[in-house]
């Protein structure tokens, strides 16, 4: 990566703005799905039980690394909508310090006009992904 990364607040603001420009929910999902498509390949050998978050509808995998005081996250899902939301969360949380992560709960999802339900249900694994990200941050901070 070249140059200093934008701050977590700037990234969240930009994402919320981009989403707000998309009036139709279909366009918002299109945007989300495209984010997911742009995620770097998640290597098959990382899809171990350790990195798996089993939802009853879809599965999420996440591979966290703590390096030089920052948490780097790679992730994916078998559902395209969920993969897009994983990408959205990683855009916000990956490459941040534990302190940055812990002080930014995922309230931006509702500001973006996305279904709150997507994150509150335990069925798609996103809720557990957020928990995992925050637990990783807590553990790294300790």
């Amino acid at each position: 990566m070249s140059g200093p990364a934008p701050s977590i607040d700037a990234d969240i603001r930009e994402l919320v703005e981009e989403m707000r420009l998309l009036e139709d929910w279909q366009f918002r999902y299109e945007f989300i799905i495209e984010l997911g498509q742009a995620l770097p390949e998640f290597p098959e050998e990382w899809k171990t039980p350790d990195h798996e978050i089993q939802g009853c509808q879809s599965q999420v995998w996440v591979y966290p690394e703590f390096k030089d005081g920052r948490i780097y996250l790679r992730g994916t899902s078998d559902s395209l909508i969920v993969r897009g939301l994983v990408a959205l969360l990683l855009k916000v949380y990956s490459g941040r310090t534990p302190g940055e992560i812990l002080s930014h709960p995922p309230d931006f999802i509702t500001e973006m006009g996305l279904d709150k339900h997507l994150l509150s249900t335990r069925s798609n694994g996103l809720n557990a992904l957020i928990k995992r990200i925050f637990q990783t941050a807590e553990a790294a901070k300790a």
């Binding site: 509808q57 879809s58 078998d78 559902s79 395209l80 969920v82 798609n124």
Partner: peptide, 19 residues
Amino acid sequence: HPHDLAHFLDQDGLAIRAG
């Protein structure tokens, strides 16, 4: 994916099950 299908069908008022 069933999740993606069910999510979009719900927007049309269709209640089905995925999982």
